[in-house]
């Protein structure tokens, strides 16, 4: 009889977690939906951010994750291809690379922010300025490119893991057929493996974007701006970003009550964005997993 009590207790744990998620999302949807309209999405903040919209933040976020994707997808996909198609099975190299990826995924976001400042801005950026621009300050300061590259390193494990899962789903027989027809390894990878792995790469990319769009700590000192009167259009511009905008509105607003509707709607927009991306990724992934099971 005591057993049933404990089983009920574990069920209660589930119930509490589900209820917490429902309360958080319900609260944000309820209050966020209210002041959301097209004008809010398409105009800039006004009156010290107590009025107006969030268009520059949306634009900055999209620009940021686009740059990040360009950097992280090739790197992540090539890493996964190496691990699964090139490296000898169960070799030391593989173990070290996997360990590094696992560890990279566990590094706190704020440490990436420090790294972005210390490496990209102070070292790479300052270096470019000194060598190519005669010490003129252009890249040695917070900029969207440095924030994007910092996020690319942060999301690298996500892309590698998702791509590898897709590679694993491709039957060995497909590779053997390609080899038997005289294909080289690279031809096999390009013509046989990659086309079938598109789903996995897409999943990884989408998950990375959803993660990157929500992370604030790494961009605090690498390029995010409190407020900008213009949209970023160069790689070394600063930018506004949704997550950072939430932080600013929530903690540094001159009039908390007045900004509250705007704050809620901004949170709602960010959540809808990340969830839409996550759902797409989960949907693609479940299709890949189903294929994997069917072929086993």
């Amino acid at each position: 009889m005591i057993g049933i009590f404990f089983v009920a207790l574990t069920a209660l744990c589930c119930l509490i977690i589900v209820a917490l998620v429902a309360v958080i999302l319900g609260d944000i949807a309820w209050f966020g939906w209210g002041s959301l309209n097209l004008q809010f999405l398409l105009t800039a903040p006004q009156q010290g951010m107590t009025e107006g919209g969030i268009f520059p933040a949306i634009f900055g976020t999209v620009f940021l994750v686009l740059l990040m994707t360009i950097a992280v997808i090739p790197l992540g996909v090539m890493t996964a291809i190496y691990l699964h198609e090139y490296a000898p099975r169960k070799s030391m190299v593989i173990r070290w690379i996997r360990l590094a990826i696992e560890n990279l995924a566990g590094v706190p976001a704020i440490v990436f922010g420090l790294f972005g400042l210390g490496f990209f801005i102070e070292f790479v950026g300052r270096g470019i300025d000194r060598i190519f621009l005669d010490g003129q300050l252009a890249f040695g300061q917070p900029a969207i490119i440095w924030a994007a590259l910092t996020l690319a390193l942060l999301t690298l494990p996500t892309v590698v893991v998702a791509t590898e899962e897709a590679l694993r789903a491709i039957p060995v027989s497909h590779r053997e057929v390609a080899y038997s027809l005289g294909a080289t390894r690279l031809q096999m990878v390009r013509r046989v493996v990659l086309p079938q792995a598109v789903g996995g790469i897409l999943t990884g990319g989408i998950l990375a974007v959803s993660r990157g769009a929500g992370e604030v700590a790494p961009i605090l000192f690498t390029g995010a701006a409190y407020f900008l009167p213009y949209l970023p259009n160069k790689l070394n511009d600063q930018f506004m970003e949704l997550g950072y905008h939430i932080y600013v509105l929530a903690t540094q607003s001159p009039d908390v009550e007045k900004t509250k509707p705007i704050l809620y709607s901004t949170v709602f927009v960010l959540l809808v964005l990340t969830f839409a991306l996550n759902f797409t990724a989960i949907w693609i992934r479940s299709r890949i997993r189903r294929r994997l099971r069917a072929e086993k």
Binding site: I17, I24, L25, E215, T251, L271
Partner: peptide, 24 residues
């Protein structure tokens, strides 16, 4: 049913959790 909901929780950006803790 439960697993995706916990995945959903994992997908909530930390700044949103911070916002919720601060405001609500």
């Amino acid at each position: 049913f439960i697993k995706p909901i916990i995945e959903l929780l994992a997908g909530i950006p930390s700044v949103v959790l911070g916002f919720f803790a601060l405001m609500v």
